[in-house]
């Protein structure tokens, strides 16, 4: 952002032109605030309805029940949005374009990794487990796992080799596709798409959450890494030194 003001008009001139925009924005804020302060009749919320059907939901946590049962369709699509994000980032990658990031190697980072990554995996798993009856769940666990992946990517840690290169794409797709197939299986069993009820719902939800958290974490790390795996293999053959510092 060094030369940020390059295309800008002189400041005094600009101030006057900003005035109507600012006025419009303030009006908009006032309208929003009015809608917030004086809500209409429809503002009752869905808390009572969620509570009423919680027994059929399969989990004790209301947020998890909403995410993975009552509004599972939303969550399914959001898993696919993450996948879509990875596809966009990968398709925009150009091997000759970007200056390769300097690996932020250092003794502190390396030892921090060794200390934190197991802890993050543990906390992520705990959050996944806790999601069934209190705060926690797939998205929180996935965020923490993604953070662990980012930490490893920062200096292209040797720990990354634990994860096989070919497993990346199937791992990214695991959560969304499993979610989708569960939804279709529910149809095969006579329900609607993604409709599962109490006796087997808790097992289904735990399996879904595990797969979703794994894929969410992997997606977040892949978004940070930014390089598709195949091209990296090509890159690595040509210029092995540039292959460091990014997702393998």
């Amino acid at each position: 952002m060094k030369k940020g003001g390059k295309g800008r008009t002189p400041r005094d001139n600009r101030g006057w032109r900003l005035l109507p925009v600012m006025a419009l924005l303030l009006l908009f804020l006032a309208a929003l605030a009015r809608a917030y302060l004086f809500p209409g009749a429809s503002a009752a919320g869905l808390a009572a309805r969620v509570d009423a059907s919680l027994a059929a939901g399969g989990v004790g946590s209301r947020v998890t029940a909403v995410l993975l049962n009552f509004r599972a369709y939303d969550t399914l699509l959001e898993c696919f949005v993450l996948l879509l994000g990875v596809m966009v980032v990968w398709s925009l990658w150009r091997p000759d374009g970007a200056k390769s990031r300097e690996p932020a190697a250092g003794a502190i980072l390396a030892s921090l990794e060794r200390l934190l990554v197991p802890l993050m995996i543990m906390v992520g798993s705990y959050l996944l487990w806790a999601g069934s009856d209190r705060a926690g769940g797939a998205f929180q666990a996935g965020a923490i796992l993604g953070g662990a992946g980012v930490l490893l990517l920062l200096d292209s840690s040797p720990l990354l080799k634990v994860f096989p290169k070919r497993g990346l794409v199937p791992g990214l797709c695991l959560g969304p596709l499993f979610f989708l197939s569960v939804g279709i299986a529910a149809m095969a069993w006579g329900g609607n798409f993604l409709e599962y009820r109490s006796p087997e719902a808790s097992l289904i939800i735990i399996a879904l959450e595990g797969a979703a958290a794994f894929s969410i974490g992997l997606c977040l790390a892949a978004l940070f890494g930014g390089r598709p795996p195949e091209r990296q293999a090509e890159d690595g053959r040509d210029q092995p030194s540039r292959n460091q510092g990014e997702f393998r």
Binding site: L67, D74, G85, C219
Partner: peptide, 18 residues
């Protein structure tokens, strides 16, 4: 109300990816 909370949870992850 758990519905807005669930929307925030998924929204954060989606905003990161976008």
């Amino acid at each position: 109300d758990p519905v807005p909370q669930a929307m925030v949870l998924t929204g954060i992850v989606v905003s990161v990816s976008s």
